[in-house]
Design a protein around this nucleic acid. Structure first.
Lengths: 228, 228
DNA sequence: CGCCTAGTTGAAGTTCGTCAAACACTGTGG
DNA sequence: CCACAGTGTTTGACGAACTTCAACTAGGCG
């Protein structure tokens, strides 16, 4: 289930928060961490947990979900490789964090990670930077969620995934795989599965995209999606 | 317009990020800051700015707004006293920050504030904590925005303001003033003015609240608002 | 082959947005 | 003092967009 860290081969070793550390500091932090492999759908942290851990995502993708009392799930955020999962200050988590695909994380106990932040201020600064980016991201999704129009929402989400799939952060990838099912897309956007499906076919009919299989998207006319 | 800081009388001196500093450190930080008084509707930072400043809110309330190309404004977040405004890492801001009511802020130049974080790691940790709380907050609004149902959205917003108005952070205040106009509420929730108005009158008709003037709200049945 | 899940498509019902009018409140000027 | 305009809010009628319900299609795997 869990193994010691092997930072040397880590694919996110110079993008994650720990990239701010020098080799010696990193070794020290690594001693308190473990890597863990999650299967698709497996939950990393559950709402109501005592919030004793935190983690950095190495490969795969996570979702942060809120479950309403009536059982419907809403996706509040996605975590991409090098992203950070967990809250350092709240006594309890109130959201589930679940693997979307098979994922590998670096798991740390919260007290040990807090200790590391105390001793290596650069680590704290790096985490601050990442948290501010997450905040910015959350606000972008909020912006989409408020736009009211389903066409905007789906178009904006497609563009967001196209950008996330590209290596250069600004230009969208011309072809990519959706990381989410229709149901997950719907719960991310506050729509129903059917509406998402209809908007996607509409974009294809209008020549904005071309579908390849269930999840493959080829971007033909980015402008059409960005401002519909 | 701007004056030197007077931390001794500051109403948020033990809740804002600078509360993490001791007296001497605080004095040093204070030398690089200025307080500024904003009239209602005045903008503190504008989208597209070079992002050279950041600020702590002392009194009043701010909103973070995104303006769509078509001119409609969407409120992404509110900033309450002791809250922090500005991004330390992005080269440009892409959201306006505007005063909702007459507000007083502590303004710092970004390089000087970053410098202070470097020298006083506790300040960085405090800011990290605050940013994580902001992130949590943004996700709560996102949760509301996704709920789809206008009744949930308005009910949730009323409860959020009731809690913000109370001294104890968990229990809602039984009577409070809405900090936002109907138009602002609408743009925060992704609804129209009319829908917000209708939902509020519906809550009053159903006995959940009692209105006192345009902005005054008396909370009669919190459970009705929380889970409608 | 048949079941099961994920996705698409269609028809009907509801909610919310749009347009329009009325109302309350404030401040201004006759 | 009152008429008046101006703003913010409420209310109503109507139409469009989304949800709901339901049937149907396409793959994947026993």
């Amino acid at each position: 289930m869990t193994e010691p860290l092997a930072c040397a081969q880590c694919p996110v070793r110079d993008r994650a928060a720990c990239a701010s550390l020098n080799d010696e500091e990193r070794r020290e932090l690594a001693r308190s961490g473990r890597t863990k492999l999650l299967g698709a759908g497996e939950t990393l942290f559950a709402a109501g947990d005592d919030n004793a851990n935190c983690a950095t995502l190495v490969t795969g993708a996570l979702k942060i979900v809120s479950l309403s009392p009536d059982g419907t799930e809403r996706i509040l955020s996605l975590i991409h490789p090098a992203g950070f999962a967990g809250e350092l200050f709240a006594p309890f988590t109130d959201h589930d964090i679940v693997a979307l695909t098979e994922s590998r994380v670096c798991l740390f106990s919260r007290p040990q990670f807090e200790d590391a932040i105390d001793r290596f201020p650069k680590l704290g600064a790096a985490l601050l930077r990442r948290t501010q980016e997450d905040l910015h991201d959350a606000r972008r999704w909020l912006d989409l969620a408020q736009s009211g129009d389903a066409r905007h929402k789906v178009g904006g989400a497609l563009m967001a995934f196209a950008k996330a799939a590209s290596d250069s952060p600004c230009h969208p990838a011309s072809t990519f795989e959706l990381p989410l099912s229709r149901a997950e897309l719907a719960s991310l956007l506050g729509l129903t599965i059917e509406t998402v499906s209809r908007q996607i076919t509409r974009f294809e009919r209008d020549g904005g995209i071309q579908r390849h299989g269930k999840r493959g998207i080829e971007l033909l006319d980015p402008a059409l999606l960005a401002e519909a």
